[in-house]
Each structure stands twice: as structure tokens, then as C-alpha cells.
Nucleic acid binder design. Sequence first.
DNA 1: TGAACAGGCGCC
DNA 2: AAAGGGCGCCTGTTCA
Length: 755
Amino acid sequence: MAKVAIVEKTASRTDYNKEFEGAFDFDQYQLCSDSSIKKVLKKDCDISIDTNDYEWIILIGSEALKYFVKGTTSVTESSGSRVDKKFLPVINPSMLRFKPEARKTWESSKDNIIKYIKGEIEEVVIDESIAFGIQDTAECNNFIKEAIAHEGEFVAVDSETTGLYPRDGYMQGISICFDGKRAAYIDIECFTEETETLLQQLFSKKTIVFHNAKFDIAFLEYHFNFKFPKFEDTMLLSYLINENPGMHGLKALAIKFTPYGDYEKPMYEWMDNYRKEHGILKNDFDWGCIPFDVMKPYAAMDALCTYILFEKLKKIKENPKLKKVYDEILIPGTRFLIDTQENGVPFNNERLRLAQSVMQENIDKAIAALYKNSAIREWEEINGKDFNPASTVQLRSLLFDTLGLPPTGKKTGTGANSTDAEVLEQLAEQSNVPKLILEIRQRSKIKNTYLDKIIPQLDRDNRLRTSFNLHSTTSGRLSSSGKLNMQQLPRDNPAVKGCIMAAPGHKIVAMDLTTAEVYVAAVLSEDKALIKAFRSGENFHSAIAKTVFKLPCTIKEVEHLYKDRRQAAKAVTFGIMYGAGPKKISEQVTKDSGKYFSPQEAKEVIEDYFKTFHALNKWIDKNHRYIEQNGFIYSFFGRKRRLPNVKSSDAGIKSHSIRSGLNFLVQSAASDINLLGAIDMHHYIQANDMKSRIFALVHDSILAEVPEDEIEHYSEKLQYWIQLDRGLIIPGAPIGCDFEIGDDYSMGKFEKAYQ
DNA sequence: TGAACAGGCGCC
DNA sequence: AAAGGGCGCCTGTTCA
């Protein structure tokens, strides 16, 4: 019998003692990385066990993993898989009480570990017979010919590049696997015209499987002009299986679904050594400097694993709803986003620089004003260093110690006195410091996060090409990241939006859906009163306020006669979509209206609201029950939201899950209306050879640069595709589309503010 | 030096 | 009894 040790950090051993009972003999060790705890529990601590004494060492929880296997962080990633020959990391079973969703991971990890120890899992060796390199043209072309001739329908392809965006790097090589048994990494250097012809034949004949197709196709199109009529994406399949972000990387999936585990580790070790030898910081590492021979096994393994993953993950397509999401949203969405990203966001360099210097001046002025307050110098003398307004720790001590302002009672997550915007506004009456800090924060945010970041990343044509992601939200919304998150540009301050300018002869056309999520709720709940509000064609929140409060005026008059009532109705409408309670709604209304609105008043309005929208209330209750009973729910367009935590014994976690599930129903369908409309419009643009270019999506809006003579055509067709009856529609009252058209995305506000 | 966390804040 | 959903990214701080 193998000699096994178990190492853990906490002292709760009962869980796994029971789980592993009888499977094998094992010794236990407690790991204490925290020195203060270590002293107290000295007797239990034995972190200096000799690993040579054991054939296997089970590591419970991330602390234990980190201690023995350097460079690892996430235990969920490798739970149940062998690491570094003899270590078997596994998630801590004590978390199951609070996180029942981890039950599956625990069970399969446990089974795996037992198999390893009983010798039922054989070690796989990665060598030339399965992962090899090609640097010779003839050999390369023969291999591609072999791939073309192979009977299989699928070919996995992966590319190695020196950058994340096609214009920021070049291609080093591509890996191909056509039988799931072996894969080749081909050096780009050996490509000839014939190679490219053969590759295009391959890409045209077969269905090409990528892991993150958006990335590979963008590179392969930009650098070679290859076309991919049929492709699949293992990352998107993984997303269908588990919509929670974070575990869709090839590495994590290979560990989970292939026998090859963390095969790239030696390459990262090579990189670490190389950086150490040459004194290169992590961020400055150039992927181009990895020699072909170092890269080849790992690059080839990427294609091999992608192939294996596809064979396993494609089973999710047996679920007809998810298959539909994949075929009709995710794959067409990939194609659409490649083009949208390639179009890029048109920036005006001069405006960016102007805005940048204006922001810097404002910051300098505010800092100068700040130093006129003697408290700052006092603080600096006490602490012996310069005051940094960006440090919350320093600000906290300045406000509450040096200045002696009374804390508002609002705390941060860790129990310290908060210094957020709300607190600073409250404190502004007693000192000029909070106001100045707010000003510095606001301008610095705009400068640091947007202007400073955009300028150096512009492409030669002054366009910014950033990423939109299909796989990183639980609701099916897109996310945006990379060079710039296009979904969080300041809305009211024109400094950034004003820098997005259409080329001469073009306009920026921004289409917004109006109250999309409420529209979805109205359709799904079939609430007659809510539907009537949409049918009225009048301002939605005014119509709602009139109905809820039975206001004795026309809908148009609500806006100025009953402003407060309208505000309350609006807050409740949105609050309900998020599952907010009276407390939150009272805070929201107080904030919006500037007048105190008590939780009791909020409670009464909510009651009135549900009395008016009775069917909506019933629909919400019905779905709450469904979510609680089943632990998952499907959206109108077939997306699935898994919520295993509805079974949690923690009431907070449980109710959070139920709120998420309900919000998912409206958020998901609303954003899919927008995405499907954009995809269809994009196809229409291509089919009709229009010159309009969609360059960004923001959840329920679509941004495009449109030639002046196409504006009417574009707007009319976009509205058509958005309002198309996809089954989610109020007959006679399609979802509202607002159009804004201007030379820049601030719609002229930039000029007024800065020029 | 790098990673993780904390606090904060931008958007829909 | 109380309960706001979904994101990404900045700077500062702390610790290994």
C-alpha cells in the first residue's frame, strides 16, 4: 500500500477523514503559514515533513497547494489532478457547507485521488510521438496534405503569436491536430505560397476547432487572409457547460478533461529562468524570444488538447436549448465580434490630448487648493511623508484623526471607516478637504483609466481596437476588456466620449433600447397593466407613475406635476428588476430626488406597485419558486443559469442566488435582443455592401460610424432588426429604439465644455 | 518583484 | 429579518 500524507491548513479533519475512510492509509499534517497561529498550535504544526517519505501527498485547500507547489494559486483549477509528480491538490471539503456548488468538484476530485493512489491512473508521457515540431517546408506541406486527406471532419488549430492583437504582434507558428492522437507545431518561417494554399484548402474543407476562435481567426485573417467557413470553439462550449467566468482557459480545461494535466508548466519555468538570467520584468517579456524547440511540445499540445476537449465538450450540444444558443448566438457572435473589434473605435488624437491636459490642470488646481489647508501639512509632519490623495488609508487618517471629522458610520468591507463618494459628500459641510478629494478622484479616474490609457494604444489609423468577450458573464451579456473597457466610458462627462469622432463625411450613430429589461419583464409576465404602459407610447416612467398612484392628470403632465412620484415609480421599477428591498429603494430615491424618502414610504410604494402590476408579482413569485426548487433556470433565448447555491444554508447566499436568477431572466433576454439585432444588422451591412461600421456594443446599445448618406438606411434597418419578432414582443408595441446622431459620441457636448 | 487583496468607481 | 443584478480596472497596501 502506498504511503500517503494529507496536508491541510485548518483543523477540521472530520470531513475528509470520513470521505477517505478505508481507501488507503494516510498520515495527517497541519500546515500553519500564519506565524501567530503557528505559535499557538505548535504541537499540531508540521510543515517540515519530508516529502521523500511519501509516495503521495494530498493537499487540502489552496494554502497547502501554495506551500508545496510554487507558482500555483488556484486549487479549483488543479483539484483532483496530479501536480509535480506526487502532489494531489483538492478543494477544502469544509467549504461545502457554505458552497454546495463545489460538491461536484469535491466528489470527482476525491475519486481521482483514490484512483491515483491505487495506481489506476497511468502516467502519460508527452514526447515526440504525440507532440512534435516542423520547420521544414516539405514536411510541413506533407503534414497538411495528410490532414486534408484524413477522414475526420474536425481539425484543431491553435496559433502562437507575440501579441494579443493582430497589429501588436506577429505569428510564430500554428499547431494542428487532426486525429486526436498527435499534433504538430509548424514554424511560420517554413511557410511558402503552396503552404498557404494547402492551409486554406484545409480550412475550407474541414470544420476548424479553436479554443477562443475570436483570437485565432483575427490573427489568421489579418496576417494571412485565411477564411474559416466552418469553425467551432471549445471555450464557448465550456461556457455553455458552466456559465461562471474564470475556468474556461485551455489550461484549466486540459487539467480537468485531458490526461495531460498542466503540460505547459515546464515552459513557464523556462520563461522564469530566462527572465531571471536576463533581468527582465514579467511585463516586459517578449514571447518572440522563446526558441522553437522550447515552444514546440507545448504549442502542439494546445492543439491536441483542443481536439480532445472538443470531443468531450461537444456533448453539451445534445441540450437543444444550449445548442441553439451556440449555433445562433455564440458562433455568429464570434464572427460579428471579430469584425467589430477589427473596425475599431475611431478616436480623435487632438481631442484626447486636449482633454488630457485639461484634466491634469484641474487635478493640479485641486491639489494646490488642498495644500492651502494646514491639516495636510500637519498630517505630513505627523507621518513623515507626502500625503497621497489616492490612498484611502492616508485619507482615512487625515479625515478622522488629523481633521477630527466625525465618521458617518459607513464602513468598508473590512470594517474600516469608508471614504467613498457618499461619505465625502456628507463630510463636505464641515471641511473643504472632502470636496477637493472628490474632484481629484473624479478627474484622476478619467485621466488614468481612459485618456492616459487610450492615447498610447491607438493604432496608426487612430482607432482603438479592444476586446469584446462572449464568454465572461453569467447572464450572456458581453463584457469588454483589454486595451479599454468600452462599456464603462463616463456617461455624462463628455471628456472621453467626445474624443470618439466620426471620420469626415460620417456620423456617430448611437442606438439605445429604451427600458429593455422592463420590456422583457412585461412580455414574459404578460402583465396587462405593464403592457399597457408600453402600448401607450408615452414616457414609460410617467405612465407607470400615473397608473400606480392613480394620478389625476395626463401622462405628459406627470413629469412636472408629480416629479417625486415619478422618481419613486422609476426607482421601484428598476429596483424590482434587481430584487431590491425597501431600504435600498429608499436610499435610491433619496439620492435621486435629494429629499429623504423613508424605507416605510418605499415599502408602501412597492405594495402599491405590485397591486397595480399583479401579474408581474405572480410571475416573480413563480420564478422564485422555480429557481429555488431546481437550482437553475433558462432564459427566453435558451441560456442556462445554474444556481446551486439556492440550497445553501446561509440565508444571505441563498437569497442572493434567487435574486440573481430572476435578474438573469430579464437581463439575459434584453441583452440578447441587442446582440441578435447587431449580428443581423452586421450581416445586412455585408450583404448590401454598406459602408456603415458597428464598432461597439454596450449591453443595450449599438454604436456605429455611418457615412452621412447611409444614416437613414442604417437607422431604419437597425431598428428593423432590433424590433424583429423573435418571439419576445408586445404585439403592436415593439421594443423602443432611441437614436442619437452626432459628429462625436458626446453629441456635441465636448465642444461646449472644452473648446 | 509579483501577486493578492482592499477600496473605490466607471458603465448598463 | 433583510435582502440591488451584471461587469472591468484603477491605485495603494501588504506579504512572500
